[in-house]
Design a binder for these strands. Structure first.
Lengths: 111, 111
DNA sequence: TTGACATTCAACCAAAAGGTTGAATATATT
DNA sequence: AATATATTCAACCTTTTGGTTGAATGTCAA
């Protein structure tokens, strides 16, 4: 469920501004594909593809009702991504050479 | 400094497992390019390119001493990325329809 | 100065990403 | 039954990505 590939897919999915915008659009609740596509200047098909990327990354769930597809946000992948990032950051924040790093950066700032 | 493009570059950079491994390697402190490349099965040139991607994303800083290039980790980009992710997550966590979502998911779990 | 070492540059390649257009499918509406 | 709507599928194109190999550059060491 949380293989490294999943993390790859999550990060890749949110690395695109269009897809981040789609996720944010879904914050106001479920929306159909056409509704999601409406504000963008690119074709419906392009958005359809972006949605597929988000879906493969499990960031978006699809609920089919007749010919309409309702999309909604799923939180797990971002939780996992946040975990990786925070672990990495915390590790660094706690390293013994933090002081050394600070000094080195301060040193460089003087040039 | 923190344009959306920067966020794109950061997320794209850490979406690759090799590059995440490089960052983690740098947790044990500065390292030269060859040292960083050593554990990987791919060519030095490939790693050199990965480092360039990390550098363009400002995740890695390079300090040249003679023929040797010392690489070190920089924390700002991950801070920014974490901020975006956390904002998105917090927004969702606080949405009124959280209950509705939970119920819907519970409902699905029964199948 | 000759040779080894650390690193990048350049050219190339295959695969993936991100977009387009046009046709297909499935469902609603009249 | 005919038409309109919602969405995807398929083919295509261009750019980017991630890798390769071989040559170039710059620095250290004999």
């Amino acid at each position: 469920m949380s293989t490294p590939q999943t993390l790859d897919r999550t990060l890749l999915a949110i690395a695109d501004p269009t897809r981040r915008a789609i996720l944010q659009r879904l914050s106001s609740g479920e929306a159909r594909v056409t509704e999601v596509a409406q504000p963008f200047s690119m074709s419906l098909n392009a958005i359809s593809k972006h949605i597929l990327v988000l879906e493969r990354a499990r960031l978006v769930k699809r609920r089919r009702v007749g010919r309409e597809h309702f999309l909604s946000y799923r939180s797990e992948p971002l939780d996992t991504a946040a975990k990786w990032i925070d672990e990495t950051r915390n590790f660094w924040a706690s390293r013994l050479d933090t002081l050394e790093k600070l000094l080195r950066e301060e040193d460089e700032a003087k040039r």
